[in-house]
Design a protein around this nucleic acid. Structure first.
Lengths: 241, 241
DNA sequence: TGACAATGACTGACCAGTCAGTCATATTGT
DNA sequence: ACAATATGACTGACTGGTCAGTCATTGTCA
């Protein structure tokens, strides 16, 4: 598999295999507008959005299972229930499809990050809530595989690594840092240096994602329980002090 | 598969490939010179081991840079300074080459794990020593990329994931758990539940590896400093009670 | 010791199969 | 009926793997 990969020596005429990464990048009609299942999808536009969603869904399964290079577009088309040529009506090429796929999968995650709402109770509860959500909606689902996919292909797709860093990592850490600092001023957290490394707070979550995809069958890991012990380290024993 | 198959209709004379081989010419010892190593490599046997090492070295670079599927054996051969066919004198096929490569790269790591020596001073110092070694010899080197490679290809190479779990993860965690328990009995660590999740102790190291390969250029991360803050969480402020 | 034969590591052209991307034709919606 | 959409047969660049042939090295014998 693999195939044409880079290469792309200046040859202007050669139409095929470009892979030149043609600027654009586009995100045509992503508008996940009429989403809701029920909808039989109003007219043409709805039909089109449905098709696109089906393709993305299928592509996600394939890319997660095989990685970028080993995924065959024939398989994606078959799984999506469309002809191969149809894929090219929605995506410029394999690479673009992959990148848009990742972006699409991250949108909901970004939404959640930018909506870190008011902290009512103890900061610890907020962080614990984050952990529960993360374990339930990321580690235990295909979202976790998306993260692994980013780790896998990131080095070869700078655009994806950049996007992920900018939209998810950066925002997430900024929010977490704010949370830590709030906890410090409130006296919930003693270690002031923790504010310098918000990564430490989420480290167990990352480990849970990786463990899940690699060693789950060798030795199951209760990510949430682990995270709670971690919170004890940060905030001190629960209910004590 | 493939191969030129029978064919050979009667033609006995056909020399094959013409391959006139322009006498001299050749490209005898393109090899990376006589190797800087001390060993001039005793006779044939040594030569063979050298070749094998050169191939593994080259393959490692290519697989790390492109992943399994996208790596071309032609490139590996070129980088190793041998002909493609030579690869098959040392490895059964691409997959075998990849697996043996990973195993070879992990050997030194395994050696270090099984040699967790006597703890003389505080447990914290031992763990800190581990962290320093890890950051210096893994995160900052190609070994870190090997770990990322395992995360990437593991799901598609169960044999590798199994081996890694059995020889590295399992042993490493067992050792770490023993260390934590020792610290608990000594009173260095207060949180007894930490013994249930030794993964927590090394989580920052994992995060450092991933960060290094994905976001290093966006935002450098001082893994060791981060780890030390983490140790403060586990053991309490350094020098303080 | 020198000539010659045997060995097998190494080479690289070749082959068969694969798959990204194309496009002439067919189908559908209005 | 016409345009927009969808199809899938097809093209050809590309790669894993093969093996007939080469030749440096080692072994043998006079």
């Amino acid at each position: 598999m693999t195939k044409r990969t880079e290469k792309t020596t200046g040859t202007q005429p050669a139409k095929r295999r470009t892979t030149i990464r043609p600027a654009a990048a586009r995100i045509p009609k992503v508008a996940s507008a009429p989403l809701p299942e029920a909808k039989p999808a109003a007219g043409r536009a709805g039909k089109s959005a449905e098709r696109r969603a089906a393709i993305i869904e299928a592509a996600m399964d394939e890319f997660i299972a095989r990685g970028f290079a080993a995924t065959r577009l024939d398989d994606v088309a078959k799984r999506a229930g469309v002809a191969k040529g149809t894929l090219y009506l929605y995506f410029k090429d394999k690479e673009t499809m992959f990148e848009e796929l990742i972006r699409t999968a991250l949108v909901p995650l970004i939404g959640r990050l930018t909506a870190l709402p008011t902290i009512t109770g103890p900061v610890r509860d907020a962080v614990e809530g984050f952990a529960e959500t993360f374990m339930r909606e990321v580690v235990a689902t295909r979202r976790g595989d998306i993260i692994r996919l980013i780790v896998s292909e990131g080095p070869r797709f700078p655009a994806i690594a950049d996007f992920y860093f900018r939209e998810v990592v950066s925002k997430g850490l900024t929010g977490m840092k704010a949370l830590v600092q709030l906890a410090i001023t409130r006296g919930e957290i003693k270690h002031r240096e923790l504010g310098d490394f918000p990564q430490l707070v989420v480290a167990p979550a990352i480990v849970a994602v990786i463990w899940q995809s690699l060693f789950a069958r060798h030795a199951p890991l209760d990510g949430l329980a682990m995270f709670k012990v971690h919170l004890d380290l940060i905030f001190g024993e629960r209910g004590k002090t």
